[in-house]
Design a protein around this nucleic acid. Sequence first.
DNA 1: GACCTCAGTTGCCAATTTGTTATCAAATCG
DNA 2: CGATTTGATAACAAATTGGCAACTGAGGTC
Lengths: 225, 225
Amino acid sequence: MSTRILVVEDDAAIASMIDLVLRTNDYETVLCGRGDQAVAAFHDSNPDLILLDIMLPGRNGFEVAKEIRTESDVPIVMLTAKTETEDIIRGLENSGADDYITKPCPPRVLLARIRARLRVHDQHPIEIGDIVLDLKGHKVLRNGEEIQLTPTEFELLKHLALNPGTVFNRERLLRDVWKYRHAADTRLVNVHVQRLRSKIERDPEHPEIVLSVRGVGYKAGFPNT
Amino acid sequence: MSTRILVVEDDAAIASMIDLVLRTNDYETVLCGRGDQAVAAFHDSNPDLILLDIMLPGRNGFEVAKEIRTESDVPIVMLTAKTETEDIIRGLENSGADDYITKPCPPRVLLARIRARLRVHDQHPIEIGDIVLDLKGHKVLRNGEEIQLTPTEFELLKHLALNPGTVFNRERLLRDVWKYRHAADTRLVNVHVQRLRSKIERDPEHPEIVLSVRGVGYKAGFPNT
DNA sequence: GACCTCAGTTGCCAATTTGTTATCAAATCG
DNA sequence: CGATTTGATAACAAATTGGCAACTGAGGTC
């Protein structure tokens, strides 16, 4: 049973690019080019996730998202053009969408966002860099080979990987991962990050999975995006 | 995913007026009438912003704000009666609140303040000129390529970009960005603006993003507007 | 008890960032 | 125009930060 994604996008070039990316990654796709057909397409296809453009013929993405939200909490990821006005971008807040992507965007980013959203609803493993995080099996794999992490290391990696690209400061990580109510010595985080890196990074001196943001904290990310 | 606001206010008339204003503007509201229940309400509702009265039965707003600050940096906007003593107004500065509103206040003002606060925590990137400011990922992009900024440079740019077109004098920037209580040598600002420009401006000699206003200060903006 | 592993603590070093100051250039104004 | 003010830039010293190694101690297992 493969994962099905409904893509609502009127620009045929972008739609077919997304379609290609998804299909080559074993997602089943359903395409829809009009806003006023999107809800029907949703009913017909019953997808696991919806990629929804905002500017659509017939009906805009906000309305579509709102209507779908009245009957389902399927993950909705909005597609926004980089040139979108602030009004529109701001409007995203109330649309019921779970995430947004500015298009065009690199396939890897697209896939990462989709996977991050899907994991809330199913138990698919998370890919980050060249490693795979299997939450269900509580395992970390590189090239199918298991990497042994301690519980703290696993939780830390999981927390970052579930929010790829988002920077967390050390206090926040102590609260979220360690469940500290009041921040202690934050160097504890440094040490665990360093230990985690020594296990999961191909070259721990040039991390690709857990990245430092000087003066702020750490994030999981793609170095070249 | 609509925006949820926790309203902590004991006066039922005011609470329901605020509730009405927020709901008609597509905010989700959670109401709480007692100070000693506010922290629990915060945990239950996990709001995007808190409107917090000071005079409350059970526990005052200052204490509530302080406790919440130990575990979250959710925006907190305090509500104060116009008749409040100066002591209390002064106390606001140390409570960890982000802003305060004197009640009653016109709905427009209430909404404007709320939006201004939410904006900082907004997940969406800010576009300014030809660069994109991603607050969540704490990075700055031009044509998808990352520009490395130091923490101070990032905060400075963020502050200007969140208020495009508004001119800030140097004293103000030292207070807002550097958190200096009393103005020091304002040439520090010049130096950082210059460093920022050398990284983000296409042609640092003819800035398009961070503009000088001679005799006053700096602003973010487009030279032709 | 001896031997593990893992979590947390601390000190040190190198690199980066920051604030200060001096100098230079540009704009303003009589 | 020349004087003065204001902003840009370069150079430097001080402070901060992140990575790392080494150590301690708690808890589990044989």
